[in-house]
């Protein structure tokens, strides 16, 4: 009887301890991870990227022996990695170093300078791909972790923590960015911004570091990343719909104040879809297929729904009248 009780007691004790000794998907069932858990979960999907600088006839950053480095995120088990365009654009030979320190030659598959994203590939399978989060559930104030290669390649897979300071931010950018206060440095570029569920919600880009104010870093939101990846996979590049106008937002919009003034067309490119559709200078674009556009960011985010060849109905204000114009987008020349 005594032995039976002992065994049962041990069993019960172990059963109670189980939630504290398990990790991974089981812990997700019981809520968010600790920071340590997040780093442990995501770090295997984070890679260091190092490469020889292309030179043409000029040495780039000769103080670093012509080596450039950054960070990337494994997005598929068969070796596809997302990073910033500016990390790999100037690399002649790209090498990816996994979290287990094994290094592989990589090749550039696709790159987009405007979104500052690039897709590279290593010939290695069975890799731990990162899990993407949902932008819809990202909230200001939530804790996030950035993992990357801050200042030196020997510091790769370093982790820093902060909070989301803002969403819908823009810094010399025509696209929405996530603002946070995680400490990042040059080599963090291309690395993940991760929520406390261990999900990637952004790709860090130090392209915007020039603004140099402490406690402000910017990441490309995960929905934008997913949009770009889907275009890379289907088309090998981002297929932007082209309207063929130069436009500007109102002063209120520039200051981030509420407005419904729309975007003013300053110039219509001859032969462009805008000209063919009859859009004119001084027209104000108010909506695209029923979606209000009052800032350049609004317009660019809206354009993600379209491809060259698609048609959209523009609601415009011309000389005080609201008219609707159907436009067929073409490819950016």
């Amino acid at each position: 009887m005594r032995i039976k009780l002992k065994i049962t007691a041990i069993f019960l004790l172990l059963a109670m301890m189980l939630p504290t000794i398990t990790y991974g998907s089981n812990a997700a069932k019981v809520g968010e991870y600790s920071v340590t858990d997040v780093v442990k979960k995501v770090s295997p999907s984070v890679v260091g990227i190092i490469g020889k600088a292309k030179t043409g006839d000029t040495v780039i950053d000769s103080s670093a022996d012509g080596l450039l480095f950054g960070t990337g995120v494994i997005i598929k088990p068969n070796g596809y990695i997302i990073t910033n365009a500016h990390v790999v654009r100037n690399m002649e030979k790209i090498v990816v170093v996994l979290s287990n320190s094994r290094a592989y030659q990589a090749r550039l598959k696709a790159l987009d300078n405007m979104y500052d994203l690039a897709l590279i590939k290593i010939d290695k399978g069975m890799l731990p791909a990162a899990t993407f989060g949902d932008m819809g559930s990202v909230e200001v104030g939530e804790t996030v972790v950035a993992i990357g290669t801050p200042l030196s390649f020997s510091l790769r897979n370093s982790a820093t923590m902060g909070i989301i300071s803002g969403i819908n931010r823009s810094v010399d950018s025509e696209f929405r960015l996530i603002q946070s206060d995680v400490a990042i440095n040059k080599g963090n570029s291309g690395g993940p911004l991760v929520n406390m569920k261990g999900e990637v919600i952004g790709i860090t880009s130090t392209k915007y570091m020039g603004y140099g104010i402490e406690g402000m870093s910017f990441s490309i939101p995960i929905d934008t990343v997913q949009y770009v990846i889907s275009h890379f996979e289907k088309y090998g590049k981002v297929m932007r719909p082209w309207l063929g106008v130069r436009m500007s937002e109102s002063l209120l919009a520039t200051y981030g104040l509420p407005t419904d003034e729309g975007l003013t067309i300053n110039e219509v490119v001859p032969g462009s879809p805008a000209e063919k559709a009859g859009l004119m200078e001084d027209d104000r674009i108010l909506e695209v297929d029923g979606v209000s556009v009052n800032t350049i960011i609004d317009y660019n985010e809206c354009m993600k729904k379209y491809l060259p060849g698609d048609t959209a109905q523009f609601t415009i204000m011309r000389a005080g009248n609201i008219i609707k114009v159907s436009v067929v987008f073409s490819q950016v020349p």
Binding site: P77, N78, K121, I122, D123, K124, G125, M126
Partner: peptide
């Protein structure tokens, strides 16, 4: 099989 190799 090629997915496991990491081939494209």
């Amino acid at each position: 099989i090629l997915e496991c190799f990491g081939a494209e």
